[in-house]
Amino acid sequence: MAPGDAGHGGPGAGVSEPAGMEPLVQVFWVPKLGNSEEEYEDACAYSLAARRFAVADGATESSFADRWARSLVQRYTAEPPLMPPARVPLPEWVTPLQHQWHAGVDWEALPWFAEEKARNGAYASLLGVNFIEPEPPAARFSLLNWFRRKPAVIPGLRWQAMAIGDSCLFHVRANQLLKSFPLATAAAFNDRPLLLGSNPARNQSVWGAVQLAEGDCQIGDLFLLVTDALGKWFLQSCEAGGRPWETLLALGTQAEFGAWVNKAREERTLKNDDTTLVLFAWQADAPGAPAPTPPS
């Protein structure tokens, strides 16, 4: 979706929230300074019903990357690759999107340079996270195992994530960064990530570079999906001993987020790039459940 609208999977798109718990979701985005909103090439989508969230970052140096990035996040939230039950392999998963992208280009109408550029294809990072119920126990019931089970506030809810490129997932629990995925340090960012392409001939190096991760989820846990500029800022802040999630949680509106981004760009702590944040915290509506991490 174009963030901020009621597009695919967002509130108002007819999806229902899972009974018993609901994540509080906020989406903020700002285009690169000097570019219009139409030139924004990040994308994000989520489905509360399916508990899937995705962000993608279309590469500046490719054509029609905005459309490519949108198609990736939309398909991810509808049917993610590699995940159960279908476990669709990534090359197979991306093929219809590549056809769709190619068919969406009016090749005849393009001037020579635009055609040559488009022949190279569009490129985007893709970061997706799913929340899944535990698999039914394979072993027979064991009283000992039941006794030893780990207490979980959301019983058994786990997350699984996949990433291609440098969009990042941050998992925060009890005011501590629990997981940074797929990049763990600010130094790991560069301007030449391996990205998922609309040109099938360019993806051979991608298949072996897909990153996977998973973890458990408790009520009050905070998750942030960000594109690279914000990811680098976030990790730099953590490395300096800060709690960047507190800064982001304090931004309640798109306008506040935009003002904060502009200031950080001026101070050169945030790279001037399309910037996207999807932030959500799990909470339960059951009586007595603990509240999500509050904004500071």
Binding site: D57, D191, R192, P193, L195, N203
Partner: peptide, 10 residues
């Protein structure tokens, strides 16, 4: 020359 993200696949 840096104008923004360029895929290393290229």
């Amino acid at each position: 020359l840096d104008i923004g993200t360029r895929s290393s696949n290229l």
